[in-house]
Simulated assay, not measured.
Amino acid sequence: MRVSAVFILSLCLRIAESETEEQHWYPGTATWYGEPEGDGSTGGACGYGTLVDVRPLKARVGAVGSALFKKGEGCGACYKVKCLDHSICAKRAVTVIITDECPGCPSDRTHFDLSGAAFGRMAHAGENGQLRNRGQIPVIYRRTPCKYAGKNIAFHVNEGSTPFWLSLLVEFEDGDGDIGTMHIQEAGSSEWLQMNHVWGANWCIIGGPLKGPFSVKLSTSTGRSLTAKDVIPSKWAPKATYTSRLNFLS
């Protein structure tokens, strides 16, 4: 039987991709916190608030130690976490979004403190509770693209913002999920003003009076960039959320 060269090339590429993916799994440990089927904590150290308990996050969240939290610059990144105890765990990985910090996590290894719901999803069907009873378990993990079907990047104007102090929280950023730098551009200006990372996933700029509408330019930890033109209107308000028309993967 003759096998086409295209088929052989396709098969080789699939094998190479599989091997490359496996090489990027790293060892770690995992525990869980909060309610057994809950989201760990309300909001967490990234500042996402109640978003952690509604779709698309819906408790698929976790806390990490300093190595992955990166003083908040790791907020929004997504990871696949897979339990290694196959006596009670399924072979599938659970995908989690980093929304919190774990100050008490072990410093000698990478550790995930997952929501009770996310932790339980690694178990065989019907054994979620038994897995949670194990406490700490060995896992492997790897970075994975964040996916928010039907969602575009949104900018939440934090409470207390004024024309002289503007603070933004970025929501539903797919792809890398994290933020490396953020800039805004005022109405009628060609200059991009650099925002400063404050805490968690929150960025701010001091100046002014700042005049909207504002365009926002994001870059991720891998250097991918995106510009949302005039996404924040001239009559913006604190505690309001303004949704763009784009995302990294759309």
Rank of each mutant, 00 (worst) to 15 (best):
M122Q: 02
G76D: 06
M1D: 03
G212Q: 00
V94Y: 02
Y33R: 10
D108Y: 07
N158P: 00
C204M: 10
A187H: 15
Y79S: 06
G150T: 09
G40C: 05
A237P: 00
G28P: 11
I88Q: 06
S107W: 00
V170P: 08
S219V: 05
G208N: 10
G47I: 01
E17Q: 15
C75I: 09
I179F: 10
L226S: 03
G223P: 11
D53T: 05
G175S: 14
Y141D: 09
V157G: 11
A59P: 01
N196H: 13
F214N: 07
S66G: 02
S66C: 00
G177T: 03
E159R: 15
E22I: 01
P238C: 10
D113S: 13
M195L: 10
L218R: 00
G160M: 09
L210R: 11
G43A: 05
G160D: 12
E171R: 13
Y33S: 12
V96Q: 07
I8W: 07
V81M: 05
S221C: 01
I205V: 14
G104V: 04
R109D: 05
P103A: 08
Y141M: 02
V3P: 00
A125M: 04
T220M: 03
R134N: 01
V52N: 08
S234H: 10
G160Q: 10
